[in-house]
Simulated assay, not measured.
Amino acid sequence: MRLTIEAKHETLPLAQTFAISRGAKTQADVVVVTVTNGEFTGWGESVPYARYDQSIEDTLNKIKCTKPAIKHIDDHRRLNAILPACAARNALDCALWDLKSKIENKPVAQLIDLQEVKSCVTAQTVSVASTQEMQKNARALCNSELIKVKLDPDDVIEKVSAIHEVCPDSRFIIDANEGWNLSLLKEVAPQLARLNVALIEQPLPADDDEGLTDYQCPVPLCADESCHTTASLKQLVGKYQAINIKLDKTGGLTEARSLMKAARLYELDIMVGCMVASSLAMAPAYLLAGGADYVDLDGPVLVAEDRQNGFIIENGIMKRPDSLLWGSGR
């Protein structure tokens, strides 16, 4: 069957400023790919990320150059051979899975042999800000079981203590986004362990994390920027106890599923995460939730207006609607 592939840039305003240790933004710039066989159309969404030297222009160009090679709905492996793991490959891979789902009238979960998930606990995010502002924002999430706290190197214990004060029953994932050093990690980790912190995500820069080798941190450490594809895993053993799987890093659902299976062989815990985007980007990742220890897919509440038939997130419980916008068949 002849496939027609189109890609476009969309800007999604955010509900409020989203800040991490590297900076802040007020909108999400995404790429949306559609693939049609003339009767059915599949689509996918990805986020080109400057941290990985990706841009909207470069992503659109990669998709344009790849289009002639994609001739069939099962060309996922061909796609993986043509493109490196990146946002362009993610959007194409997910669009092909959605198209296959519609053509065969089967959910993607069934096609790819993953557990169908009706609901799960997702982390909800508190962005970097002043201690007072972070406490205020956390108070609105006090009924959530799992909260992700974005932190820079400043006032770490003060900020987490303030959030713990208003959310005493929540567990926390601390995400430094490569913004700490080993000395700071060793200083704050014992105190964080006493503040319901379940995981510390990417405390050190990905190219400077050798200091974690054999470090016995009192809180499990999770690799994010250090972990992209299955090829990344071997070098993480001995440094991290968990990995964060994001489809924009793996280059799509196909590789993400392989990474999840391989990580279990290394006895690593799994977080399923996301860039800031809409439910269209969350839906393929959500299929991994049934095999994950932590889920962080709160993109739909970070954007000012989500897509129609997107996820419902209330008090940290993420539910799929009866007719999800991606991967549900016809």
Rank of each mutant, 00 (worst) to 15 (best):
T4F: 10
A7K: 14
E10T: 11
A19T: 15
I20Q: 04
I20L: 07
S21E: 03
A24F: 05
V35S: 03
V35K: 06
N37E: 03
F40M: 13
W43C: 03
G44C: 02
E45K: 00
E45F: 03
R51Y: 11
Y52Q: 07
D53H: 14
D53I: 12
Q54T: 10
I56V: 15
T59R: 06
A69I: 12
H72F: 10
L79E: 02
I82A: 05
C86Y: 10
K106M: 08
K106I: 08
P107W: 14
P107Q: 11
Q115C: 11
C120I: 14
T125G: 01
S127H: 08
E133L: 08
I147F: 07
I147N: 02
I147R: 07
I147K: 06
V149I: 15
A162T: 10
V166K: 08
A176Q: 10
E178N: 14
E187W: 12
V188A: 00
V188I: 08
A189S: 13
V197M: 08
L199C: 06
E201S: 01
L204W: 03
P205K: 12
T213W: 13
D224G: 00
L233C: 03
V237F: 09
K239A: 08
G252T: 06
G252I: 08
T254I: 07
L259N: 01
A262V: 03
E267H: 15
V272D: 01
A292T: 07
D298W: 13
G299A: 06
D306G: 05
N309P: 00
R330G: 08
